[in-house]
Design a protein around this nucleic acid. Structure first.
Ligand SMILES: Nc1ccn([C@H]2C[C@H](O)[C@@H](COP(=O)(O)OP(=O)(O)OP(=O)(O)O)O2)c(=O)n1
Length: 968
DNA sequence: GGACTCCCTCAG
DNA sequence: ATCGCTGAGGGAGTCC
């Protein structure tokens, strides 16, 4: 049937006429006078659709917009095959669990989590739903609320209460009825019944009202109580619930066997809504919503963006002492969830999703006394302590308390470095060390936080990061420890460090601890004191090098309580240290694919997510790595953990994009090609995990032109966004020694070898060389330009961002470079910092306006946001998937898409059409796979007619629009 | 000997 | 049921 705009107008006209006439007819057919009054009173329930039941687009206008994850369709390209070596990884479930159990309080973490658009503009965004479940739940909740309002209104208007005849029933109306669906709905609700708008929802429907059923529906509903509308009317007249069997539409088993008892009747398959498996477009969102580790990563970046502050020059001023406070909530998740559920904290509790092979995110100290650890599976923990109480996650609360934590502490310190949702490094640079003042500060903070958050924190205080970490460890739980040794007290420091276990040191996890133990004492477990004494002999000293040069040097410094270069730059130049270097999505749960197309679709969705993240931080990437986990040949097909990865072989492959890009359509085909090269000689069903990392990131100098380019006309990389001159961070830093971590570090400059030989004892010579080099340093030039440009902005900052050139000259070259980098990075990230948030932004607004003028957006049902539009379409499709689209709705949609074509909104068109295609494909494959499966095969899984109608709409009306756009 | 790839380890 | 992420540094091996 051809659809054009005239059709639409005619259609809309006839709709309104018919609507009003149908209302009149209701009045006539209703015997109850009160009921006809009802019809004319304020309607809280939207008018029913004209010709068919089901939710219409117009009904949906009142719904909140939802937001699903962004997804685009990308065509894959050709590739050649090549074997990559597959290295085995001993990632069995035990080892994995052990790894995650290894939970000490450490400071050295160089993570960035990622930008979360939801937090970027919380007020502008409509309410969001991460998946259909959530959406439906909300919708049903809203509808029940409307029903309640209706009852209240009627009771008020007629000053009476209605007999609760339909109490405990849950009624769904199928097809056309007389009285109408709306009438019946009101009567049911007013008389105490529940009304279900959807049979697809999880709600338990007790009765279906129908006057007619297609033969297919007769079979589908044969196990329901299908009742004629008279049952409702006559029950109301009789003022009691009449036997439904007397009004049954179908003669079936249920009919005969059941008494009048009302039991929920839900057939297993027909009401089941599509399962949210890894093929569902919302799988990623629903997984992330529940993944604690994803939240930890995300929160870290958010918190660093919002609350991190530092004064790099001050930090380098060697006359100033530094006091490092390492502050961490005690068993954070367990405490917060315990509070929320009013649990007694002296009883063992743990936070987890499930009761069996589910990870414990956090357990309290009562549970730890049984040997339970974070990361352990619940099943094992229950063996250790059968009374262990499992509590659910309370992600929102964790995040809120963390916000309070950083807000309260922000003004109390010179430097704030958030390391996680529950722990941060806070630094003061006092003139003199006042021990009493420090301990009072600790007590004040602990009291303050305990009052404001009802959670306890522990604090470790020292003058190096490594010692602060150890202090925190010994302060836990619910305490604080201050250890501020003088430079001369080397033995005291060594003794303090020696009292800890190997894994208490940062960067020594269980693997490294095992290795060290193996090296020095295979038969017994050694402590740090043992390691210290072993290091006195040269041969023992050399043994440690088996761990690798960097790590062994680090450990040797740590054993003396000193920070290595890594820790020092983390403290002194945190903005540089935590600058973004890569961006990735890893999914190793719920991955169960059957076909390569499904994998490609999944990769498309992952890359779309990455691309939009890149764009949102205005960066581009030139390198990617795809990492795959494949179920080991001899391991069971389903691992112990539900939908877990189990024992896997891990392989990865790195590739390059033709240039720096943040475009989905460039990245996705490349990555899919690598997938085909990497994933060979194994069935798709063995795939258990996919990880995609983008690296070699660069910040775009200009606006994100790339994302605004038309895909077809501007797909040459020459048009790519111009980038900043590279930040001068490629110069390696070499540390010769740190006599005293509290003092200026000595750096070996990267000088010609003859200078290098005497740089320790010839300071002048050294300085001159630095001066010479400095003048032609591109980094310096870059910084100077940058400095000029950003001068004005910088004046706004709450800390001095004016670099003291004289002070800078005093420093070794490498330090200068690092400080310069720090300034550059600070300026780059400042737009997301708290200080910048307080000042209104001018430039982005202007840009936005100019874009809008140039390119006025086309609304769809008053919506402009593409995600809101697709969300509305998703709901529409979901609710009509088995019936097919209504003609008028289809017309509205097609008309909108034609406008997009007409006004050249190509990317929007592509986005919407791709999205529709994906949705419809998904449902088609859902029904197909269900009917192909001999075990669940039944009438309930037959491909509904509606699907065919949706496909027809897609293929005949929608896809051609995309093609016409391509030809244009 | 430097650049690059493919792991491995760690953190929370 | 169950939500096993993600960012960083580093080392061994390979290639030229
Ligand atoms: N394997 C892990 C480790 C930690 N976390 C989460 C839950 C923790 O509450 C939070 C903070 O981690 P910590 O290492 O600080 O551990 P806790 O706060 O639980 O205990 P504590 O710090 O008292 O040792 O991170 C997690 O989900 N899984």
């Amino acid at each position: 049937m051809p659809i054009n705009e005239n059709d639409l107008e005619l259609f809309l006209e006839s709709t309104s006429i018919l609507n009003s006439s149908s209302q009149n007819s209701i009045d006539k057919t209703t015997s109850n006078a009160e009921l006809s009054n009802i019809e004319h009173s304020t309607l809280l329930i939207p008018q029913p659709p004209l010709l068919k039941t089901g939710t219409t687009l117009s009904e949906l206008k009142t719904q909140e917009g939802n937001d699903y994850c962004n997804h685009d369709s990308i065509n894959e390209t050709e590739e050649g095959g090549k074997t990559d070596s597959i290295k085995q990884q001993e990632k069995n479930d035990d080892a994995f669990e052990k790894m995650h159990s290894n939970n000490n309080n450490r400071s050295c973490n160089k993570n960035n989590s990622y930008f979360n658009p939801m937090l970027q503009s919380p007020t502008r965004m409509p309410q969001r739903y991460n998946n259909y479940d959530e959406y439906m739940e909300n919708k049903i909740f809203q509808q029940n609320k409307n029903d309640q309002k209706l009852i209240a209104e009627y009771e008020k208007q007629f000053n009476k209460t209605y007999p609760q005849i339909f109490k405990n029933t849950n009624i769904y109306i199928n097809g056309y009825t007389n009285p109408t669906r709306l009438q019946l709905h009101k009567l049911i609700v007013l008389h105490g019944g529940k009304f279900s708008h959807y049979l697809t929802s999880k709600r338990n429907v007790t009765h279906i009202i129908a006057t007619n059923l297609t033969s297919k529906k007769k079979i589908e509903f044969r196990k329901y109580r299908v009742v004629q509308p008279e049952w409702i009317m006559q029950s109301i007249e009789a003022n009691k619930l009449l036997k439904w069997q007397d009004y049954a539409l179908l003669l079936n088993d249920t009919n005969i066997n059941n008494t009048t008892d009302i039991k929920t009747l839900v057939t297993k398959d027909s009401t089941k809504k599509p399962h949210l498996d890894c093929n569902h477009p919302d799988f990623l969102a629903s997984f992330f919503k529940n993944s604690r580790l994803h939240h930890l990563t995300t929160w870290k970046l958010e918190l660093q963006n919002k609350h991190m502050k530092s004064n790099p020059v001050g930090a380098h001023h060697n006359r100033i002492k530094k006091i490092i406070y390492y502050i961490d909530f005690d068993c954070f998740f367990a405490t917060v969830s315990g509070l929320k559920h009013n649990e007694n904290s002296s009883l063992p509790i743990a936070v987890s999703h499930g009761q069996g092979n589910s990870d414990i995110a956090s357990c309290n100290y009562a549970a730890r006394s049984f040997g339970i650890k974070n990361g352990m599976w619940v099943s094992r923990a229950k063996q250790l302590c059968s009374t262990l109480k499992i509590l659910p996650y309370e992600f929102d609360s964790y995040r809120k308390i963390s916000e309070t934590f950083y807000e309260l502490l922000y003004d109390k310190f010179d430097t704030v470095i958030p390391l996680s949702v529950d722990e941060g490094v806070f630094i003061d640079y006092p003139e003199d060390i006042d021990y009493k003042g420090i301990s009072e500060k600790c007590m004040d903070i602990r009291n303050l936080l305990s009052t404001k958050t009802k959670c306890t924190v522990s604090i470790g205080v020292s003058n190096t990061l490594v010692l602060s970490t150890l202090c925190l460890k010994s302060a836990k739980p619910n305490g604080f420890k201050i250890f501020l040794p003088h430079n001369t007290e080397k033995e005291a420091v060594a003794k303090f460090v020696g009292s800890f276990q190997l894994t208490d040191l940062p960067n020594i996890g269980h693997k490294t601890a095992d290795k060290i133990n193996e090296l020095y004492s295979p038969s017994s477990i050694i402590t740090l004191a043992d390691l210290q004494s072993n290091l006195s002999s040269l041969s023992s000293f050399n043994k440690l090098n088996k761990l690798g040069g960097k790590l062994s040097r680090k450990i040797i410094l740590y054993l003396k309580g000193e920070d290595d270069i890594d820790n020092i730059s983390k403290i002194n130049t945190p903005f540089n240290y935590f600058r973004k270097k890569s961006l990735s999505v890893d999914i190793n749960w719920g991955i169960r694919f059957q076909t390569i197309e499904q994998v490609y679709n999944f990769i498309d969705r992952v890359v779309a997510r990455l691309a939009s993240q890149l764009k949102s931080i205005n960066m581009a990437s030139s390198q990617y790595t795809i990492k795959l986990a494949r179920c080991k040949a001899n391991s069971p097909i389903e691992p112990p953990k539900y939908l877990g990865m189990g024992l896997c072989d891990i392989t990865s492959k790195t590739g390059r994009f033709p240039a720096h890009t943040n475009e989905n359509y460039i990245m996705s085909p490349e990555i899919k090609q690598s997938f085909r090269k990497l994933y060979i000689q194994a069935p798709i069903s063995s795939l258990r995990g996919i990880s995609i990392t983008l690296s070699n990131l660069k910040t775009n100098n200009d606006r994100d032109i790339g994302s605004m380019l038309d895909r077809k006309t501007n797909n040459t990389l020459d048009n790519f966004p111009r980038l900043h001159p590279p930040l001068p961070h490629d110069v390696p830093l070499t540390m010769s020694n740190t006599e005293n971590a509290d003092q200026m570090v000595t750096v070996t400059p990267l000088l010609p070898s003859n200078d290098n030989n005497n740089n320790n004892n010839n300071n002048n010579n050294n300085r001159r060389s630095i001066e010479k080099r400095k003048s032609r340093s591109p980094a310096r030039e870059f910084f100077n330009n940058y400095h000029k440009k950003k001068n004005q902005e910088r004046a706004k900052h709450h800390f001095s961002t004016e670099i003291d050139e004289n002070a800078l000259k005093e420093l070794p070259l490498e330090m200068q470079k690092e400080i310069q980098r720090e300034y550059a990075v600070i300026n780059l990230v400042n737009s997301t910092k708290r200080s910048a948030l307080e000042a209104p932004k001018i430039i982005p607004k202007k840009k936005l306006e100019s874009i809008c003028c140039f390119n006025p957006p086309i609304p769809f049902q008053k919506l402009l946001n593409p995600k809101e539009i697709t969300a509305r379409l998703d709901t529409w499709i979901l609710q009509n998937i088995e019936r097919g689209p209504r003609t008028d709705d289809a017309l509205l949609l097609v008309q909108y898409l034609r406008r997009l074509v007409k006004f050249n909104k190509k990317s929007m068109l592509l986005y919407i059409v791709d999205h529709l295609e994906e949705q419809i494909d998904y449902y088609r494959s859902y029904y197909r796979s269900a009917s192909d499966d001999p075990q669940t095969s039944s009438n309930h899984h037959q491909m509904p007619d509606g699907i065919l109608q949706w496909e027809k709409l897609l293929v005949l009306k929608i896809l051609p629009l995309r093609e016409s756009k391509n030809r244009a």
